[in-house]
Amino acid sequence: MYARRASQLLKELDACEPGQLVVFNSDVFDQVIRECGEHNAQFQALIRKMVEQNLDIETTRNEDHYGAAIHHLSLLRNKRCLMAYMYNRAETIRSFRWKIGPVLPHEIQEKLNFSEKEYFRSHSSAIKSYISEMDIDLTVDMVPPKDPYIQVRVLEDIGEVSLGDHSVSLTKNSLHFLRRTDAEQFISQGLMEEFLE
C-alpha cells in the first residue's frame, strides 16, 4: 500500500506530546526516500512505453497513463509527508531555542539528526544576531513581572542573616517582607514559604 510508511512518520509526530520530539526515525525516512525513487522509476518506464507506442502523453488515457498518474501522486504524497515531518520537527526545534536556550541538553540532542543539529545552531545564531543588533535580550522576561518583594513566613530558625545593607532576624514563624531574589534560596531549601496576606 503506497504511502503507508510515510503516514507512519506523521503518526509519530501526532502521537508526540506538543513541544516534544521523538527520535528522528531515519529507518522509515530512508525507506520513504527509496519508495520515491521506485515510484519515479516506474513512472519513467510507463511514460517511455507510451512514447515508444507513439501515443500522445498529454491526451492519451490508457492504463499506462493512469499507472503513471498513480506513481506521480504517490511520490507527491511521500514528498509532502517528508516535508511535513521535517518542517514540523523544525518548528519544535526552534521552540527549544526560546524555551531552553542556545545549548540543548543531551537527551534532546540524541533525538535530532545531523541536519537538525545544524539547523538548530544556525537558527540560534540568527536569533542571536537579531538580539545583538537590537541590543535587547528577548530570551528573558517570558512571563509578566511581579512585585520584586514577597511576604514570607520562616519555617525553621535561621538566625541573623545579612541582606543588602541591613540584617534580619529569621526566627521560626516570623513574617518578613523580602526581595524575592533574597528569599528564593531559603524557599528552595524549605526553610521559608511565601504566603499571601
Binding site: 526516500i33 537538525e116 539547523y119
Partner: peptide, 23 residues
C-alpha cells in the same frame, strides 16, 4: 534580515535532508 536568514537556513536544511534525495 532575520526573516531572510530564517528562510535561507530552513531551505538549506530541507534541501539537505529531503529535497536533494528526491528525483
Amino acid at each position: 534580515r532575520f526573516a531572510k536568514s530564517c528562510k535561507e537556513i530552513m531551505e538549506k536544511h530541507l534541501e539537505q535532508s529531503v529535497l536533494s534525495k528526491l528525483p
